[in-house]
């Protein structure tokens, strides 16, 4: 189980936590909980979802304590189809720069987006892992991709990154 999923879980954690140390802790934490609670699950697809769900919940638990949550109602409009990033350009970009761009996407979009790009997760899997409706997954993927394109275009140009306006909510 560790061999199969630890790398994908680490990448998911890295996109959420934004630094390798916290991502490593989150990944370890997930397998620790697995070892104590989850290893009775025999169905591999359920085990995979369980691992990603557990990691995400651990992340949210820590996030709640930091008191920095962005309410979905406060999110800026993200439905833009104008920032067209050439695929060749992405292919030439350094992987760490791509991850950096992904980490700057708003948090509510970032989680489904990362699960989507890890490729093994369908929109139904993502809805289960994040405990959100299917329609919300679709919407967040669509808006998240638009944000990511803008950020990638800025990274590729080496320009200044313009932050999306965020409104902090109380914990």
């Amino acid at each position: 189980m560790v061999e199969t999923y630890y790398a994908a879980l680490y990448r998911f954690a890295l996109s959420l936590a934004k630094n390798p140390s916290d991502a490593g802790d989150l990944t370890q934490q997930t397998f620790f909980v697995w070892a104590t609670k989850g290893d009775g699950i025999r169905d591999e697809s359920k085990a995979k979802s369980w691992l990603f769900t557990t990691l995400y919940r651990e992340f949210l638990r820590i996030r709640r304590r930091s008191g920095r949550m962005v309410a979905i109602e406060d999110l800026p409009p993200g439905e833009q189809d104008t920032a067209d990033v050439e695929t060749d350009l992405v292919a030439k970009m350094d992987a760490s720069l791509v991850m950096e761009a992904l980490q700057e996407v708003d948090e509510v979009f970032r989680a489904p987006l990362t699960l989507f790009y890890l490729q093994d997760h369908s929109y139904l899997d993502i809805a289960g892992i994040l405990s959100i409706p299917v329609g919300t997954v679709m919407s967040r993927l669509s808006r998240g991709k638009a944000q990511l394109r803008i950020l990638l275009a800025q990274k590729a140009r080496g320009g200044r990154i313009i932050e999306f306006p965020k409104q902090e909510a109380s914990s």
């Binding site: 994908a8 992405v90 992987a95 991850m99 992904l102 790009y117 490729q119 990511l148």
Partner: peptide, 9 residues
């Protein structure tokens, strides 16, 4: 392309 980049980390 993006998926390949992320999986390369």
């Amino acid at each position: 392309a993006l998926g390949a980049k992320l999986r390369g980390i």
